[in-house]
């Protein structure tokens, strides 16, 4: 499969670009409409966080092929300020920007697997996987 692996996030419109590419990838992999919406929404949240809090970064896509299942992995990474207290930002309603604080806890619920790595002062990498059902 011809695969454009990453979308750079530098400006606000890149958020739309990333989620649209993510939806296209999800469709190609055979995800249903609801899962496509889940994946696109999760990408939108991660890309906006990069744009808002780190200024720039990227969202990359990877197909995971396992014997018994196939999935789409989304990796959002930036070299922004990092996150000091991960358990805090994973709480519903926690926001430092006047947002709903729904983004990160939402992504965790929308996707099947969620991992967050962040180092204060160095940057953040979030990996999320959705399996094709």
């Amino acid at each position: 499969m011809d695969f454009k692996p990453c979308v750079n996030i530098n400006k606000e419109l890149d958020i739309v670009g990333a989620r649209q590419l993510g939806r296209t990838r999800a469709k190609e992999l055979g995800f249903g409409t609801v899962d496509q919406a889940r994946i696109a929404t999760a990408i939108s949240e991660l890309a906006r966080n990069i744009y808002l809090y780190a200024g720039k970064g990227k969202v990359c896509f990877e197909v995971i092929d396992q014997l018994d299942k196939q999935g789409l992995k989304v990796v959002a990474s930036d070299e922004g300020p990092g996150i000091r207290d991960i358990s805090q930002v994973m709480q519903d309603g926690y926001s430092t920007s006047g947002g709903l604080g729904a983004g990160l806890p939402g992504v965790k619920r929308l996707m099947d697997h969620f991992e967050i790595h962040s180092e204060w002062g160095k940057g953040t990498e979030i990996q999320a996987i959705k399996w094709v059902r």
């Binding site: 409409t33 609801v34 496509q36 919406a37 889940r38 929404t41 949240e45 519903d92 709903l100 729904a102 983004g103 806890p105 939402g106 619920r109 929308l110």
Partner: peptide, 10 residues
Amino acid sequence: AVAMTLIELG
């Protein structure tokens, strides 16, 4: 699909 994702977002 939008209604479902909204609820999952909380």
